[in-house]
Design a protein around this nucleic acid. Structure first.
Lengths: 224, 224
DNA sequence: TTCCGATCTGAATAGGTGTTCAGTTTTTCA
DNA sequence: TGAAAAACTGAACACCTATTCAGATCGGAA
C-alpha cells in the first residue's frame, strides 16, 4: 500500500461533496429543480461534470440528498420552535408557523422539493421528506388532543391535510403574489396558519391568539 | 375547389380527436401522466403517431386539453352538487364532498392533473384548472360567510388551502393505502371533508352533520 | 525524486421520446 | 373514372442532458 487518504484529503473530499450539494441547493433556490442540471451545478461547485459522479452515483441521488438535507433542516427548526413553546397547543402553533415561515421564505426551494416536476425519479425521497415533517406535526396534534385542547381525530390524516393546506396556500401556484413584501408575507403566514389550525379543531378565537404568539419566535428563526 | 369536407368527414375527424383525447385520458387514469406518451396514446386511439399531430400541435397541447376537459367535468359536478343543496353551508359541504369523492375515485388521474411531473410544460393549464375549482369553492365559502355561517375571512386563500388539504390527504403520497376499499374510501372522504370544512370555520358538530348529509348525493354522482 | 494509485477533466457517447415528412391511402367531385 | 386535395402512416430525425471514460493531474510514500 503506497497510498493512504490523508486527513487533509479526506477533508477536501468532504468539502467538495458539500460544495456540490450547496451548489445544487442554491441552484434550486434560484431556478427551481428544473435548473438543477449536472453541468451548471458542477460549474457552480467549481468541478467538472464528471466529478459530480465521483460523489453521487446519479443525478437522482444528488437531488435525493438535497431533499433529505433540506428536510432535516426544516425538521430541526420545527422541533426547536415547538419544544420552546409552553404547552401542546402553543407547540403545535409554533410548529405550523415555522413550516409556514420556512416555505414562504424559500418558496422556490420548497416547491422544488414538494412537487415541481423533475426529470429523474425522486419519489422516494420526496415521500420520506413529507413523511418526516408530517410525523412531527402528527405528534404535536396528538399531544394537543391528549391535553384535551383538540377533539379526538385521525391525527395522521389531520397532519397531512394541514400541511397540504399550508403548502397549497403559500407555495402552490394559487398562492398570493407579492409574498416577497414582508407585510403581505406576514399576513399570508398568519392567515394560512389560522386555516391550518382550525382544520384540526383549534377554536377560532384561540387559534388567532396562538398564531400571534407563535409568529414572533418563528420570525426570529428566519434570521438564524 | 375539388375537395370539400363532407359532413361525414367532419364527424370522423371529430370522432378521432375525441378518440385521441379519450385514449390520453384512459392512459393517464391507468398509468399517470408519465404513461401519456404519444406512441402509446396513438396505438390506443388506433392512429399513427404522426396523426396525433394533425389534431394537436404538440404533446403539451394534448395534455393541456386533457387537463381542461377533466377540469370542466369536475367543475360541472361540483356545481350540480352544490346547487342542489338547501343552503350555503350545505352547498359548500356538497361541493367539498364532491371534490373529495372525485379525487379518491380517480386518484391517478387527479394526481396527474394536479402535480405529477410531466416532461412538457403544462403549468398554465394546471393553473387554470386549479383556479377554476378554487374559484367555485371560493364562491361557496363567500356565500356561507354572507349567510353568517362562517367567520369573515380571506375566502380566496381559504379555498386554496381547503383544496390543498383535500388533495394532500386523499391523493398525495401520504394518502392512506387501500382507498380502493369502499369502506376506507368513505371514511377517508368524510375525514378529509371534515378537516377541510373546519379549516374555513365550520364548527365541528355542524361540520359532521353537513358531511354526513352531503356524502349521499356525492356518492350518487360517482355512478353517474 | 519517482512511482503509483486516486482524483479530476471535459469531450464524446447514449438513450429515450417528441416531432417531422416523404410516400401512401382515402375522399371528393367533375 | 380520374385527378386533386386532404388525411394518414411510421420510420427516420432531432434534441437534450445524464452519463461515461481515456487521458491529465494531483497527492502520498519510499
Amino acid at each position: 500500500m503506497v497510498y493512504r487518504r490523508t486527513q487533509q484529503v479526506v477533508k477536501r473530499l468532504a468539502a467538495r461533496r458539500s460544495a456540490i450539494l450547496a451548489a445544487a441547493r442554491e441552484t434550486a433556490s434560484e431556478g427551481g429543480m428544473a435548473a438543477v442540471q449536472i453541468a451548471p451545478v458542477a460549474v457552480r461547485a467549481n468541478v467538472a461534470a464528471g466529478t459530480v459522479y465521483r460523489y453521487f452515483p446519479s443525478k437522482a441521488d444528488l437531488i435525493s440528498e438535497l431533499i433529505a438535507e433540506v428536510s432535516r433542516d426544516e425538521l430541526a427548526a420545527i422541533r426547536r420552535a415547538a419544544d420552546a413553546a409552553p404547552g401542546p397547543s402553543s407547540a403545535l402553533a409554533a410548529a405550523v408557523t415555522t413550516v409556514a415561515v420556512h416555505v414562504v421564505t424559500h418558496r422556490k426551494l420548497a416547491w422544488g422539493i414538494l412537487a415541481e416536476p423533475v426529470d429523474v425519479d425522486v419519489t422516494d425521497s420526496r415521500l420520506a421528506s413529507r413523511r418526516a415533517i408530517a410525523s412531527e406535526i402528527d405528534l404535536r396534534i396528538a399531544a394537543a388532543v391528549r391535553a384535551g385542547h383538540l377533539p379526538a381525530q385521525d391525527t395522521a390524516m389531520a397532519a397531512t391535510a394541514l400541511l397540504g393546506a399550508l403548502n397549497e396556500a403559500l407555495v402552490g401556484p394559487l398562492a398570493p403574489d407579492n409574498l416577497d413584501d414582508p407585510g403581505r408575507m406576514r399576513d399570508a403566514v398568519q392567515t394560512a396558519t389560522l386555516l391550518a389550525l382550525r382544520a384540526v379543531g383549534v377554536m377560532d378565537a384561540r387559534a388567532r391568539g396562538l398564531v400571534v404568539q407563535a409568529a414572533l419566535p418563528a420570525k426570529m428563526l428566519v434570521g438564524a
